[in-house]
Design a protein around this nucleic acid. Sequence first.
DNA 1: TTTTAAAACTAAACCGATATAGTAAATATT
DNA 2: AATATTTACTATATCGGTTTAGTTTTAAAA
Lengths: 340, 340
Amino acid sequence: MKKKVSIKDIAAHLNISITTVSLILNGKSKEVGLSDILNEKVLKYTKEIGYKPNLLAKSLRTGKTKIICLLVENIADPFFSSIAGFVEELATQRGYKIIYGSTKNDPAKTSELISLFKDRHVDGFIIAPTEELEADINNLLSEHVPLVLFDRYYPAIDTDQVVVDNFDSTYKAIQMLIAQGYKNIAFVTLESDQSQMHDRLGGYLKVMEVHGLTPCVQKIAYESVEQDACTLIKQLLSTDIPVDALFFGTNYLTLKGLEVLKDLDIAVPRDIGVISFDDHEVFKLFTPGITAVVQPVALMSEKIVELLLEQIDHKADVRQKKKIVVPGFLNVRNSTGQKK
Amino acid sequence: MKKKVSIKDIAAHLNISITTVSLILNGKSKEVGLSDILNEKVLKYTKEIGYKPNLLAKSLRTGKTKIICLLVENIADPFFSSIAGFVEELATQRGYKIIYGSTKNDPAKTSELISLFKDRHVDGFIIAPTEELEADINNLLSEHVPLVLFDRYYPAIDTDQVVVDNFDSTYKAIQMLIAQGYKNIAFVTLESDQSQMHDRLGGYLKVMEVHGLTPCVQKIAYESVEQDACTLIKQLLSTDIPVDALFFGTNYLTLKGLEVLKDLDIAVPRDIGVISFDDHEVFKLFTPGITAVVQPVALMSEKIVELLLEQIDHKADVRQKKKIVVPGFLNVRNSTGQKK
DNA sequence: TTTTAAAACTAAACCGATATAGTAAATATT
DNA sequence: AATATTTACTATATCGGTTTAGTTTTAAAA
């Protein structure tokens, strides 16, 4: 109903130029030498009428939107929603707003999202990249769009990135299983070449090799987790080799695994040990609670925002790309135990 | 690196006016009588160079952003993330983009989010309102901003809204418990006057009264669910009256309740029956699975988008507000059973 | 043949801000 | 007293589109 008031209306009402109003509203009053009296007058009036500048116009002119785009695999996943929460908090403190998107691990969808948000002139991207996204990432890079990858990265592309030490955290988790006496430890993971899955698998294979144990890996395609995960895990459990522990590469695979174990009436940890990569709020509700590798989400978020803002603030400079690796740690519950 | 090409560059390159280019790109060629030859030429060239109009400029001029804001309690909650998924799908089909925000049931935060997105000139709002948001809602209404409330509403405010029949679905769920022989059925809910919680409680009280049973209600403040829920539920279970069934007003309260039952070694459904309002992906993983009232999310999403687009498309018209109530239904698992 | 109408296109205003390049008056300097 | 500086502001171009109000050329009608 009430027509929006513009900077022009304010200038007219106060009988001054729009330039002056703009300068004052942007705190440049001192800098350019406007009188305190006028400064106060404008500030008082704009506050009084509750003036809000048109951000579209502002962005069009300045080329900045103060919006950062955060692309995660699935915003409903506890790991990603937790990162989202922290990143939003930190970005807000620095005057930025966050806009989300879920990639669902679909390269085409992700590519579209990137294009969409680029069209919307976001000031930077934080992305947990899917596979086959190299072209889009290189494209952003070549256009000098501020960008931080997290959770995963491309070994062949030089980007700012923040990831957990997937290799090492997996190594240590499996090592604990081995120390507890487990021998036939199976690794259930995604059929994926994404770096994080690659490194988790690498850590598993390495530690198994070091201890002279035979690895056993079950891979499941992301798209068919809903349909096939249970079947495949069941198959895994019905081979000749009696699996005595399961390590799941992601928390949602763990959930699937638990569904199977329930179906098959296999008791944890009596019949089988279980560890999940990535925690989940419901893991503590199971009997026993499910042990999980957890990532230092707060720390990662800090690093992510820090790296991105460095790029946004010093866009012109040629800055060395920074690659940050943070340690993961085990949240030990009772889904594994000393084997007699 | 490569400078963005504008409509002006295109006009210059083809030796025509920018008006013509704009008209053609917006498909108004026929309408205003531009020749097919020219039309083709422009379309071909813009496609060739991959021209993308500056959406900021476009929005500034037209006043439309083609963005819809969806404000939910918590995007990580299965109910809301599911609504979000459907709404996004439907909106995309109609050329709109969705931008999310989580209110966390905090009126101040929500108010800020609304203001933020209004500043960003979204074309409409879909909101699961918190308490104490009447002022903001009325404000949007008075400015004729397209708006649909869902999940909850304000009885005193005339808005478009889509909700499940909270009263009736609760009534029927409790009725099943009663039919199975449960007598001391407790209702665990939020300390909240939000319409959905109010109606769920209403359904419970009514059916208890009809069957001459004594109601027993435990209320928990949203902000302190993390801290206090477990304690309060424990208290509830240690009164003189032996509670034989628990109905939880939300899925996250159910999760808390299950944590308590596990702690106290109370078996479901042997010692106690359990029903949740709103389903959760992990309910099927429990032994036994948890019975839940589920909302017809796809249908609700359709209605929500339909109502909002009606408003956006016919902004000028004075249109009667529409209030839609859809039925909920029970997803019966085994967390309740016939009492002997 | 002149007038009218239709077809095909365009100049310029506008959306609402910021940024650049000035200007007028007051004060300081020579 | 003449000139240079500083102080306090401002006119106008600009961002990149859309929209309004024309204009020119050609075909149809009088």
